[in-house]
Amino acid sequence: MGAVRSDWLRVRVSPADREGAAVLTRALEEHSLHTVCQSARCPNLPQCWGERTVTFLLLGDVCTRNCRFCAVSTGWPAGRVDCGEPQRVARAARALGLRYVVLTSVDRDDLADGGASQFAAAVRAVRELSPDAGVEVLIPDYRREPLAELLSAGPTVVGHNMETVRRLTPAVRDRRASYAGSLEVLAEIKQHSPTQPTKSSLLLGMGEESGEVEEALEDLRAANVDIVVLGQYLRPTPQQLPVSRYALPAEFEALAMRARAMGFRGVVAAPLARTSYRAARAYSELQ
């Protein structure tokens, strides 16, 4: 039995949002691109797309992992990679006049480098066609050479999500992911590139206790993460984990204050906050 949804998860869809979203939909279809906004059934889609903020989903729309909170399809793409995708992302970003581009991907355990070279190619392609745009990446658990390859492309911000607290990670994320492993990814980014801004997200409402959220925030600070995002877990379809509780807006405000006191330079905490939600604004807090 899940929790009862609260009134603050009510999203107004204005005619302007719908017009903006229609322009974006046409551009995505024209360039044959996927977005996590669509795949995750994100409730911010009308507003973000209305403002021409979009998170491109690289490497197809089939993920090799099966996290229990995520609606993206699971499968084994057997090494298939669309080599034209980085250029199409860059052309779409330029055509839409995007000033801040967010790139993420499905997990690709079927590829030797996990798809890191595709990320790097996409970052470079966007930079070439939109030299003034920021390019944020939200990556799988890349380590060593694949991580170095990605960082060599010079992304504006590198995100890697913890998603939940230590105790719940085995029940929430795919068995190939781990709490310690994700912290190591974030720490390794800073070891490789000490000035590279990093980011991570936690979702509330999966059964965590408040002390465990505090511990996760402390662990992220110990890994020198710059930006933290805290949002409410929302079940995308009845097939995913039920929502254990709806955190009050005041709890997000208190967590945001706590996170800032811990030393995070950028904090986004709200029921509908997601990793890429207001990404450009979160990055601007670092300047």
Binding site: L9, P15, R41, P43, P46
Partner: peptide, 16 residues
């Protein structure tokens, strides 16, 4: 009007 999906309730505004 209000319509409900799995993740949230969406409010439809008058276009004019």
């Amino acid at each position: 009007a209000e319509v409900e999906a799995d993740k949230a309730v969406f409010v439809i505004e008058a276009p004019a």
